[in-house]
Design a binder for these strands. Structure first.
Length: 268
DNA sequence: ACATTGACCTGAGAGC
DNA sequence: TGCTCTCAGGTCAATG
């Protein structure tokens, strides 16, 4: 579930806790979490160095290690970071531990093992190779860029919003919110949306992500009329009180208000 | 070339 | 109480 706003919060967390300290060790507890870099390679690149700054793109977080390169983190659906002082117990599902000379550690945890801990010398090259599209909150991701990202896709608009190659950062939860706020049915084919709807989607996408970032992705602090807090069995539309519908759109659980979000005009 | 579906992964929670 | 089953969802490979 870590999506763009969660990643933005994690970036703040790293910046506030783990920068500018000498790294004394790296422990990999489960090597399945690693990408192309081995545990030994990570150790030799990190030991004695410092995390200097971080950079977020979509659902990736990169942490600069001196001028040696970047740690590349992805969180799958259950990944998290926790800064803690030993010898306190490590958090459950800690997969990699970065130890500092101060006695504190930064844990990379991931219950479901869908995340990745990797290394890259060049962030832009890493993203290009992975085919990751423009960050959905980037300054230059304007309406034109959004239209370009949609292209002529006839996939469900929700699937297009979540396609990291088209735009990066939106996952299942925020895709539902964006469709709801824009009053668009998530199963609508993207290329059948009129120009007004596309520009409304764009404005809403930015507003939803920005407001979630501003509350550090704490869902209980989202605006009252947001769908997300009601995104559970038995939930009702915060706008009109209609029971939310739970359907599958492009293979993912999808919550929507059948009264507020217009059904696709074409149905099979 | 594009769109859709299933597999991967694990443990919380439901149901019996 | 304790067991089994289902489900969550980001991403990629396989299928349509």
């Amino acid at each position: 579930m870590p999506e763009l706003p969660d990643l933005a919060a994690m970036k703040r967390y790293v910046d506030a806790t783990a920068l500018h300290q000498q790294i004394t060790g790296v422990e990999v507890h489960d090597s399945r979490i690693l990408g192309s870099a081995s545990a030994r390679q990570l150790q030799s690149r990190l030991r004695g160095a410092r995390f200097e700054r971080s950079r977020r793109h979509g659902k990736h977080l990169f942490i600069a290690v001196n001028d040696r390169g970047w740690l590349a983190l992805h969180f799958g659906m259950s990944g998290f970071l926790q800064y803690y002082r030993r010898p306190a117990n490590p958090p459950a599902h800690e997969r990699v531990r970065f130890g500092f000379e101060s006695g504190f550690s930064l844990a990379y945890g991931c219950q479901r093992m869908l995340g990745r801990v990797d290394w890259t010398a060049d962030v832009d090259a890493f993203l290009a190779e992975a085919g990751v599209g423009p960050d959905a909150l980037a300054d230059d991701f304007d309406l034109k860029a959004f239209e370009r990202a949609l292209g002529d896709s006839r996939a469900a608009i929700k699937a297009v919003l979540m396609d990291q190659k088209r735009m990066a950062g939106i996952g299942n939860v925020y895709a539902d919110e964006i469709c709801f706020q824009a009053r668009v049915h998530p199963a609508m084919a993207a290329n059948r949306l009129d120009a007004d709807t596309v520009s409304r989607l764009y404005v809403v996408l930015r507003r939803v992500l920005e407001s979630a970032v501003s509350v550090n992705a704490r869902l209980e602090e989202l605006p009252a009329k947001y769908l997300i807090p009601h995104r559970e069995k038995g939930g009702r539309c915060p706008e009109c009180g209609t029971p939310l519908e739970v359907v599958s759109v492009s293979g993912r659980t999808c919550y929507l208000c059948p009264a507020c979000q217009h059904a696709p005009t074409q149905r099979k």
